[in-house]
Nucleic acid binder design. Structure first.
Lengths: 110, 110
DNA sequence: AAAGTTTATCGTAATATTGCAATATTAATA
DNA sequence: TATTAATATTGCAATATTACGATAAACTTT
């Protein structure tokens, strides 16, 4: 136990869960917000933004990258990270369904 | 360690993280999708939908409820769960910012 | 009241996550 | 080529999550 039973779910459900889980940490929210506000890519300046040690930030970046939330490209010495539109497109599709659900007032009994 | 350092982040960042984290499990995605498709509330039928034991489902429902993703009301013997618009509103606001970010083509270097 | 239904809680084992110090890696620069 | 700078990886301790059997709680029906 302690392991999520991915085999019980559809590929789409697992994919959405991985994306949402990646966003589900305040440090990673902060990283995403920073990438939004800076407008374009940023390198290790993220370490200075957060009150976390460099290896910890690196690990969070890795998780965001693996999940498809950000992407990074080498810029000489530094690495340039920015948001990955694909990952957000999938999440947006999901949230779109929920918005429709509420608009249709299908949320009957509560 | 092993503990998220919530004190490093804004309340909003922590709140968004909690919401996203709650969605970040395929069983909980499946529960949300079920609540969407059934149109209105559903009780313990969720247990039959998922290949998980009843206590496990109950635990997932509790997490979704604590995070503000679903809400439940007593219906005699059964409990009626449905999506909580408030939680999704907060997430939607966040995703809205990201959509704007992409529309403005601020995603410069990647 | 007894029995059945439905959902929650407790306890626990297995595994995952978080965070960091130390260290490695890679590329630029002196 | 040594040195510096930027980022990644490793190893580890502390804590959290996932899942489930057993059981409890609350309400319905017989």
């Amino acid at each position: 136990m302690g392991t999520t039973k991915f085999e019980f779910y559809t590929e789409e459900q697992n994919e959405l869960a991985v994306l949402a889980k990646a966003i589900g940490h305040p440090a990673r929210i902060a990283i995403i917000e920073h990438l939004i506000s800076v407008g374009s890519c940023v390198c290790g300046a993220i370490v200075n933004e957060l009150s976390l040690a460099q290896p910890t930030v690196s690990q969070h970046l890795k998780e965001l990258k693996n999940a498809g939330i950000i992407k990074g490209s080498l810029e000489g010495n530094a690495i340039c990270y920015c948001l990955d539109e694909k990952g957000f497109a999938k999440l947006n599709a999901f949230f779109g369904e929920i918005t429709t659900h509420f608009e249709n007032k299908n949320n009957a009994c509560c």
